[in-house]
Design a protein around this nucleic acid. Structure first.
Lengths: 198, 198
DNA sequence: GTCTATACCCAGATAGAC
DNA sequence: GTCTATCTGGGTATAGAC
């Protein structure tokens, strides 16, 4: 029933995604999204019956895009170390946005937790996606026992960096902490060689 | 003009503080606070003219309490290392609340940033309070050059732990990360002795 | 599929009686 | 200092014309 061109519905999701990130979910109104899409408020409800439906669509879209990105890294980078480095480097790549609006995943989950919103668990899947992917990389480095702990540690470090970079609007801080993360990664990646033999 | 007993106004600030932490600032209505204080909505405006005024009072109160806590630590713990350990241990102490609502400082600053709220800079003072206090401790350990970097690093680690503990509602993770933080502190505190001589 | 008009509710905020 | 009653605005959501 949808057109060939990924039309209005997709544009709504796209703009809503942006606005939810920039202003927060609760603080973004239908009028805001409608204005961004250049659509009348009334027509909106042809595409989405409730605001929560938009949120679900946005999260779904983020999950797809994240999964796609992780898959791309898996093929583009030959070693697990390089793949994890890619993860770490997105903080530098997205530094400007992070300083302005924080981490898209972290801030959404934090907000939905406060709202006790039914879609919270769905949003948390975004974290789980990264967690499992990172754990998989660490496993491939030979850390089968503590792969998940390492993944959680790296995730937490990233979240902390995003939160403080946002609060202090500090770009140098991001670079500094990213450097420390890469140094932290060194001994971890080296042990992948030494643990070859059972 | 106020009574002897720290009456209604203080109770409003106290309850608002709690509710802002649990539900977020924007998502907490006057009605919510009034109900908690057991006051009529109308009477509310005798004490606070606007919602932003309450927020400012809440932040002011948090700053005072935080400063008091830091001062207490400064006198109760004899060495800078022990004082930093106290800071780290509040994450275990407040573990249950952090898992439910995240870090009170981090989540407030993140929310106000998204709202582009005028009181954001005031809320950020809470971070600055911790930052300067921690930097002071590291300076006392002999790290004059990188005292602020160490403070920021520790703050970031704490924020990350709070965010993920909240998302995954994971108590074991907090303990695990706190242990790692204490281990991270070891070599840093040891160098306080070696740097006695000019 | 897009529009205008409108119903409805809840939020912040005010007036004035007690 | 506390109350009830009320105004106003913005938000979600619906109805129905085009």
């Amino acid at each position: 029933m949808r057109n060939i061109n990924t039309s209005t519905r997709d544009r709504i999701i796209d703009l809503a995604d942006q606005l939810f990130y920039e202003r927060g979910f609760d603080h973004t109104s239908f009028a805001d999204i409608a204005a961004a899409v250049k659509l009348s408020r009334g027509n909106f409800y042809y595409h989405f019956k409730t605001k929560d439906e938009i949120l679900d669509a946005v999260i779904e879209r983020r999950i797809q895009k994240t999964q796609g990105m992780l898959d791309d890294w898996a093929t583009a980078a030959p070693t697990p170390i390089e793949r994890v480095v890619r993860f770490i480097r997105i903080m530098v790549m997205n530094g400007a946005k992070i300083r302005k609006h924080g981490c898209p995943v972290g801030t959404l989950c934090t907000e939905l937790a406060k709202l006790e919103h039914p879609s919270l668990s769905k949003a948390n899947q975004l974290f789980t996606l990264f967690r499992n992917w990172l754990a998989s990389q660490f496993t491939q480095m030979g850390h089968k026992r503590d792969a998940d702990s390492l993944a959680m540690h790296l995730l937490a470090r990233s979240q902390g960096i995003a939160t403080l970079a946002n609060a202090f609007d500090d770009e140098a801080f991001i670079h500094q902490e990213v450097e420390q993360l890469l140094q932290w990664l060194h001994p971890i990646s080296r042990s992948s060689r030494s643990s070859k033999g059972s």
